[in-house]
């Protein structure tokens, strides 16, 4: 099976979906001739032309608003927000429009729209190229939020998102773009939205993660395995709607949970996971639900020493696992 990077898998999904369905159009800044600041759309402008790979004015609310209109009139737009940190200009369009169109029309209009956004820290991106934004959108009924981080999942979930009838926020951890490689089968397949996956089986405790933290957690699990701590790692892949079944099954199996995310702790998605587990699996717990997150400061300072101090890494996850395992 061919080995691909995350960015290659992403590009392949876009290419195949555009080839499969002429309603799929891309909108965003620098996505045309330039091929995107991360090269996610490289070659697509040449393959499909300027009418389907549309360089937009530098205006995020307009990008999303125009994409919503295009979806209303039968297209399958994929809008790119160049960095997730800039999505806030489009908040009104996403929260008040895309997410509510179906509900407010009693199901008579829909908004099949994908908004792609590179997110996450660890690349010296400073305050405005590093943010985690998932919790804002996980709060919005009517949206779907996905954050796959293996080449296989990225390709399959992007295809599923493009084919979905509802608006999907598709989060791409920018550090994984070229760092993470993996097997991607030839041909068409999808990974369904709303399905988490146990990426590593274990029996002593469960780590729930997504994004770059999934890879760091897997690394940490290998390290503690040598000490005899057998960790199960659950990759959420989809944040909204949440795969409660997979999460609760793992919690019931191990009895201990560590939630790892690189968003700030307060109001981060870990709180929602902890709430769910407490409500539905309290009797199965053998220890407190732990959350490992970035301290509550704006992310991320540009200086490498400052970023490294705040950012999670496999060592910090190892320490948290040891603490929980000893409980």
């Amino acid at each position: 099976m061919p080995i691909k990077t995350v960015i290659e898998a992403l590009r392949e999904a876009l290419f195949e979906e555009m080839q499969r369905d002429e309603r799929v159009v891309l909108l965003g800044e620098d996505i045309g001739l330039h091929g995107g600041v991360f090269r996610a759309t490289e070659g697509l402008f040449q393959a499909f032309g300027e009418h389907r790979v549309i360089d937009t004015p530098l205006a995020e609310s307009g990008i999303v608003g125009v994409a919503i209109g295009a979806a209303i009139n039968g297209l399958r737009p994929v809008a790119e927000i160049q960095f997730a940190d800039y999505i806030y200009s489009a908040m009104d369009q996403i929260v008040n429009e895309a997410a509510k169109l179906r509900y407010r029309s009693n199901g008579t209009w829909g908004c099949p729209l994908v908004i792609r956004a590179p997110w996450g820290a660890g690349v010296h991106g400073g305050l405005y190229h590093s943010q985690s934004i998932e919790a804002f959108f996980a709060h919005v009924a009517g949206l779907k939020v996905v954050a796959p981080v293996t080449p296989y999942d990225v390709k399959g979930l992007l295809k599923a998102s493009i084919r979905d009838e509802d608006p999907v926020i598709f989060l791409e951890h920018k550090k994984t773009y070229r760092l993470i490689k993996g097997e991607v089968p030839e041909g068409d397949y999808i990974v369904p939205i709303g399905k988490a996956e146990v990426k590593r089986e274990g029996s002593d405790l469960t780590v729930i993660a997504y994004g770059l933290m999934l890879h760091y957690s897997l690394e940490a699990a290998e390290k503690v395995a040598k000490e005899g701590i057998d960790v199960e790692v659950v990759d959420l892949r989809t944040i909204l709607p949440l795969d409660k079944k997979t999460i609760l099954a793992s919690v019931r199996k191990t009895g201990k949970v560590l939630i790892v995310h690189e968003d700030n702790k307060t109001g981060g998605f870990g709180g929602e996971l902890a709430g769910l587990i407490t409500e539905e699996a309290f009797e199965d717990l053998d220890g407190p639900i732990m959350r490992l997150a970035v301290p509550d400061v704006p992310m991320m300072p540009f200086n490498a020493v400052l970023e490294d101090f705040l950012m999670l890494n496999p060592e910090k996850i190892v320490a948290a696992i040891r603490q929980l395992a000893a409980y």
Binding site: I54, S61, V66, I68, G69, I72, P77, Q93
Partner: peptide, 8 residues
């Protein structure tokens, strides 16, 4: 902007 998108 929806109107512009529909027109697009």
């Amino acid at each position: 902007p929806h109107a512009s998108g529909i027109a697009l």
